[in-house]
């Protein structure tokens, strides 16, 4: 079953001679429970595609459908609510809230939604990611790898339909990168998550079930 699909997705900037085609007709489908890596060179449109998939940006044309919901029909507030319930984000620079503790950062999407945290599930995530003894600390007291684990935990906390990771290993050394990708894969399997990861690192991409290569805003290759 497909959890995510796009149809003829385009994103253009400017007009006339200065027209920039960040995405030029992307049509793809992502299967539920899969781990997909989107690779490409710098400026190929990877991050733009991720922003479209996560409802952070609006396409020039085309559609994005996540868990049966068409994103183009939603206003900004609906998109925000949709994101916190259905999409988990992991970023290269972690994007943790510096003045909240690790625990508060993890449960933030759930609490923003006014829901009660599933304590058993929360404990399971933090134990799996080795964060149980760090819940009271602030992000600036953690290493890069630990911060990224917190970001993974936050992405998982709301039990989203899909997790979007934008260069999650970009700021980490090779050893920590391998560790983080391994955790991403393991937690994806354990909690039955669909993961879409952007990376420019082919080696990291090999951990994924499927690799999609983007060039000049188009899908150049797709292999399992």
């Amino acid at each position: 079953m497909n959890i995510l699909s796009t149809n003829g997705l385009t994103k253009y900037y400017g007009a006339g001679p200065s027209l920039v085609k960040a995405l030029d007709g992307i049509t793809l489908e992502i299967e539920q429970g899969s781990f997909t890596a989107i690779v490409g060179t710098s400026g190929s449109g990877k991050s733009t595609l991720l922003h479209m998939l996560g409802g952070l940006d609006t396409p020039t044309s085309g559609s994005v459908c996540v868990d049966g919901q068409e994103l183009s029909s939603m206003d900004p507030n609906e998109l925000a609510i949709f994101r916190r319930r259905k999409i988990g984000f992991i970023f290269q620079n972690y994007n943790l809230i510096p003045n909240l503790t690790v625990c508060d950062n993890i449960v933030l999407p759930v609490e923003l939604d006014g829901r009660t945290v599933d304590r058993i599930y929360f404990r399971e995530i933090t134990d799996t990611l080795g964060l149980s003894d760090k819940l009271g600390r602030k992000p600036d007291k953690l290493s890069g790898g630990q911060q990224q684990r917190v970001a993974i935990a936050r992405a998982l906390a709301a039990k989203p339909a899909i997790i979007l990771a934008d260069e999650p290993t970009g700021n980490l050394d090779s050893h920590t990168s391998q560790e983080v990708v391994g955790l991403l894969k393991a937690t994806g399997k354990q909690f039955h998550q669909t993961i879409v990861m952007i990376t420019h690192n082919d080696e990291i991409a090999q951990a994924a079930d499927r690799t999609i290569r983007i060039e000049d805003g188009r899908i150049a290759e797709s292999r399992w």
Partner: peptide
């Protein structure tokens, strides 16, 4: 940037 992070996670404009 911090506000952008909140919006990305799912904070609405009203929030």
């Amino acid at each position: 940037q911090q506000i952008g992070q909140f919006l990305t996670i799912g904070m609405t404009q009203r929030q």
